[in-house]
């Protein structure tokens, strides 16, 4: 189905070609705040996530984990460094261009789903396909995708009629429908119990491998790290490989 190469997580030597298809961040720094008070949210961050790889980022609150995802997805521009997604520069000044790149190459999964209250599960998944112009409306079949995440029988329910775990599944389906190169996931299990958390992360790992998507998952939940290929730790804006 996908034209992308097979997962490369098992490759030991760096494969430049497949690197570029995932997420590459080099020397990325980001400061928040004004002249009087600044916070170094990201401090010279290097990160490579290949297609099919599930990378976890852990760290204390305020360490800069969400900032990392914001920069990776072009929601914020770093003060320094380069970010590419599927070979595309995500740090261009034009907000419009970054939005366009995000729509085509990036999927976001948020804490507690962040679904739109007015939409049914099926419409939540259809929505990203409607954000571009008519000619760009290619992607996966929303209903098939809902079935893949185990939500086939609840496709016409609205968010308030779904449990936290179900919302998160819909959120994942919504992020995958445009066939993104990179999936950015912020604390997907924060609102879930242990069993649900495992299910969700297993689903993410499965989709990442199945579809060759580079996944970055921020989590506080050390329980689910077993499903991840790489684990990074973030402290005071600095990113390091976790032992």
């Amino acid at each position: 189905m996908s034209s992308r190469p097979a997962p490369t997580a098992s490759t030991t030597t760096a494969d430049d070609a497949s690197d570029r298809l995932g997420l590459v961040m080099r020397g990325v720094s980001l400061r928040h705040g004004n002249a009087a008070e600044t916070v170094q949210a990201l401090d010279n961050v290097d990160l490579t996530v290949r297609p099919g790889e599930l990378a976890a980022v852990v760290g204390p609150s305020g360490a800069g984990k969400s900032s990392l995802l914001a920069v990776a997805g072009g929601l914020a521009r770093p003060d320094q460094g380069t970010v590419t997604v599927a070979g595309q520069d995500m740090t261009v000044p034009s907000r419009r261009t970054r939005t366009e790149l995000r729509r085509q190459h990036v999927g976001f999964v948020f804490q507690s789903g962040n679904l739109l209250p007015a939409l049914t599960a099926a419409d939540q998944v259809r929505l990203p396909l409607r954000l571009g112009s008519r000619s760009q409306r290619s992607g996966r079949d929303p209903l098939e995708l809902l079935a893949d995440v185990g939500m086939a029988d609840k496709s016409d329910r609205r968010p308030h009629q779904l449990s936290g775990g179900e919302r998160q599944r819909v959120g994942i389906a919504r992020a995958l429908v445009t066939e993104p190169s990179v999936l950015l996931v912020d604390e997907p299990t924060a609102a879930l119990d242990r069993a649900r958390s495992h299910e969700i992360v297993r689903l993410l790992a499965h989709e990442a491998r199945q579809r060759s998507v580079a996944v970055v998952m921020v989590t506080h939940d050390h329980d689910v790290l077993q499903y991840c290929d790489t684990v990074y730790e973030m402290v005071d804006g600095k990113l390091a490989t976790s032992s």
Partner: peptide
């Protein structure tokens, strides 16, 4: 506002 932030993050332009 929160919904709009989500829409923008999903790739909706301000024009959209």
């Amino acid at each position: 506002k929160p919904e709009v932030a989500v829409l923008r993050a999903l790739g909706a332009s301000t024009g959209w």
